[in-house]
Amino acid sequence: MKTLILNGSPRADCGNTQLFIDHFQSGLTTPLPVRYLLREKPATLALAMNEYDTILLVMPLYIHAMPGLVMKLFEELKPQSGHHPKIGFIVQAGFIESATARYLENYLTALAYRLHFSYLGTVIKGDAAACSILPHFFFGRLFKQLKALGVAYEKTGSFDPLLVKKLGKPVCLSKYQVRLLESRLVNRLNQIGWNWILKRNGCFKNRYDQPFL
């Protein structure tokens, strides 16, 4: 099985997506080659994909879907004829609930069908925005799950459905979670991180600016 990992992040190797790839790779005995959409022309990568029998595309969720540069790659892909290579996706998102990525998941399923790829599925992990900002011990459980995903992938050539389910939780927010998140205390705690960075950058007082009116 010859697998290529594609990093679909506009931040290439210095963001959350790269962390996801690194921890997935830590579960493999032999690391897989990684190529970066930011650094290569979409047509070049589309051609390179033909040399592999499995593609794993890892990307951040931007506005409920793929970043623009990932769509540029998709526009270059032609329907596969003869053999049916496999394709799977790992998506990391900022919002807590994985349902925010369901529009993308539905599209990726349809895209695999359109291009005659064999679809391995889409792994979605929400609440991942701070992975590369906060100390890594905050994300110990997530990184272990990604490593386990890598271990299972090497054994079976597919995503472990139990791990996919675990990583995708919560799919939606429960009423209790919404009440908690909307409470004044939790709301203020949620803003602390943003406000700390805004203050550090000297623009806290400008946080509500409306520059384009």
């Binding site: 506005i63 623009g68 540069l69 769509m71 892909l77 979670q177 509500y208």
Partner: peptide, 27 residues
């Protein structure tokens, strides 16, 4: 495009994030 919105429109959507605040609500 490829059964979805074009890459250029998707890029426009990605770039519309400054029109909103980083803070999140759950109402």
């Amino acid at each position: 495009s490829q059964g979805f919105i074009s890459a250029n429109l998707k890029t426009l959507f990605d770039r519309m994030i400054p029109l909103f605040l980083p803070y999140t609500n759950y109402g």
